[in-house]
Design a protein around this nucleic acid. Structure first.
Length: 255
DNA sequence: ATGGCAATAGAGTATTGA
């Protein structure tokens, strides 16, 4: 069983990338973010034809999330029942006995901005809801674009990024508090090469220079962490023509 | 410190992302 997350940065632009990647990486479950499509424009037929069921919650221009699955999708929840939000950033479903939550965390702009306050409130709402979901589902995974780098080793130049969005102390504290519910970063369950990132700026040859951040994560409850046998970031997609600025993250679970 | 790059909306250029 493989589960994965990928911020595609426009599903309209990246549909062919998605299909190509799935063909080479036939994961069981894929959570995607930033579809930027209203539900009536969602490419349902193309994704079904690739052998995937899919549920989605979209909007125009911004945000938008979806869960693709080779297995039946049940008990779908769009949005957070504990946090009123017009922005489509959350979708959850039960697949193969696991609760899968696909999250597109707020960017946050900069400390002191309204968007930063929204990010903090949104994360608090997520924590409240996931705590409740964890009581219902021992096997639970929260996959997505967290827009937070947990540690210095997740940032290409921690000094340069100090107090910049994605690596500020309050964001990192909020992520720690969220994980304190009992969630483990699948990527850090294993020895990894140095300088592994999941996002690189489009500008200044950032990918070529590996000036990136690790901000896309797969967080697992203890029951799933025990089953997790591997986790990696697939940098290959970032080398493709007209790529998403994010790379997929994949975790393998034993049956 | 700023801008650089990309996607979107919509027809100039502004907004947002990370």
């Amino acid at each position: 069983m493989k589960i994965a997350t990928w911020n595609v940065n426009s599903l309209k632009v990246r549909l062919q990338h998605l299909l190509t990647w799935l063909e080479a990486n036939p994961v069981d479950v894929l959570c995607i973010q930033e579809t930027k499509l209203t539900d009536d424009k969602f490419p349902l037929a193309e994704i079904n034809a690739a052998g995937y069921q899919v549920v989605f919650a979209g909007q125009k221009t911004y945000n938008g999330v979806a869960i693709l699955s080779k297995h039946p999708i049940e008990d779908v929840q769009k949005g957070n029942p504990h946090f009123e939000d017009e922005q489509q950033r959350l979708i959850a479903a039960t697949i193969a006995g696991m609760r899968i939550i696909c999250a597109y965390v707020v960017n946050g702009q900069e400390i002191g901005s309204d968007k930063f306050a929204y990010k903090m409130a949104w994360l608090e709402g997520l924590r409240t809801w996931v705590a409740e979901e964890m009581r219902r589902f021992p096997e639970l995974a929260v996959l997505g674009d967290y827009n937070i780098a947990p540690e210095a080793r997740d940032v290409h130049d921690p000094a340069e990024w100090e107090n910049h969005i994605h690596f500020t102390p309050p964001e990192r504290a909020a992520l720690q508090e969220f994980m304190a519910l009992g969630l483990t970063d699948a990527f850090r369950l294993f020895e990894q090469p140095e300088k592994q990132y999941s996002w690189w700026d489009y500008r200044n040859l950032a990918f070529r220079r590996n000036r990136g951040l690790r901000i896309d994560h797969i967080l697992l409850t203890e029951a799933l962490a025990k089953r997790c046998s591997a986790c990696h970031i697939d940098r290959e997609t970032r080398k493709w023509e007209q790529p998403s600025d994010h790379a997929p993250v994949v975790a393998t679970l034993s049956d």
